[in-house]
Design a protein around this nucleic acid. Structure first.
Lengths: 156, 156
DNA sequence: GGTATTCTGACTTTCTTTGACCTACAGAGT
DNA sequence: ACTCTGTAGGTCAAAGAAAGTCAGAATACC
């Protein structure tokens, strides 16, 4: 198990119990996990980004803290945000996969649906001889088409 | 006995015992067999490809892994038939839609999933400037990729 | 001997972890 | 008010960890 994963699930436990918001001390947390404090920032950046549905704020100096807030947003809102702002004219496979697994984590799509979506934008699926930029443009269109379809079904 | 064959049967043993899924470390496996790590990729490519009925995913970096999933034939015969016989190298949008709605009628996929699939092969999704024959080739690949994924989740 | 398959090694890409240095805030002392 | 100092979080680059790619060497199979 990766350190980052442990820290991630630790924080998520806190968020489940104490509801949508936690406040913590970077140094204490780092000490607890026996790692460099900047490791915490890495976890925040890679697992608690806005894409993942979280906002963070912090304060330095004496009595400093880090606050993590889980954003509550309707599924449809999230989907339309992805369509209109997040995904542009082109997107790579890895990023697609990340967005899809975030949707799964946020329970906007089921695991099965996520797998389907991932399958349709995989390099395996798009493995025809085409330049990368065209593949990425195609991916963007396929993603948006699927996301809009999801949004039109009533998802909370 | 060739090395690749040994590695292949080793992995298949794991898949038999631990059911349909194994996770392994490329470097460890290579060490165990005393070969170059890239040999593992060769085995995966030649013996555990989608054509052979397997799906693989992996992650790089610290704590990386390779996961191999055996697609179970039982609940998935219909799907594998579509993958192997029915859909060729190319398929049009209308025919895709027809297949998808059949799957829905047969309750192999839910309505939501069907909509998702249809969205991914729609002309809206594939609306980049490409010759029709290429679009149809793409459709075939996307469909197969999704169908295999469905087959890998054991559905009744 | 020629072709197809297998195997390796050098190089690349991705993800994680750490450490050195930077910046912001609070409170004490002047 | 103003500065000084300690506390605490931020940044970034570099090192480390692990998998991917691909060309070419080695081997196996007619």
């Amino acid at each position: 198990m990766r350190l980052s994963d442990s820290i991630e699930s630790f924080i998520k436990t806190l968020l489940n119990e104490e509801s949508t918001e936690v406040e913590l001390k970077r140094n204490e947390l780092a000490e607890y996990f026996g790692c460099a404090p900047s490791q915490i920032n890495y976890v925040l950046a890679t697992r608690f980004s806005p894409d993942h549905g979280y906002l963070t704020e912090s304060r330095r100096g004496g009595g400093g803290y880090i606050r993590i807030v889980r954003v509550v947003e309707s599924g449809a809102q999230r989907l339309m945000y992805l369509v209109n702002e997040r995904i542009g004219d082109a997107i790579g496979e890895e990023e697609c996969i990340r967005l899809i697994s975030q949707l799964k984590e946020q329970r906007i799509v089921t695991a099965d649906e996520a797998a389907l979506m991932a399958a349709s934008v995989s390099s395996r699926a798009l493995g025809v001889p085409l330049p990368d930029n065209l593949k990425n443009a195609l991916r963007a269109r396929i993603m948006k088409s699927m996301l809009m379809t999801l949004a039109s079904q009533n998802r909370t």
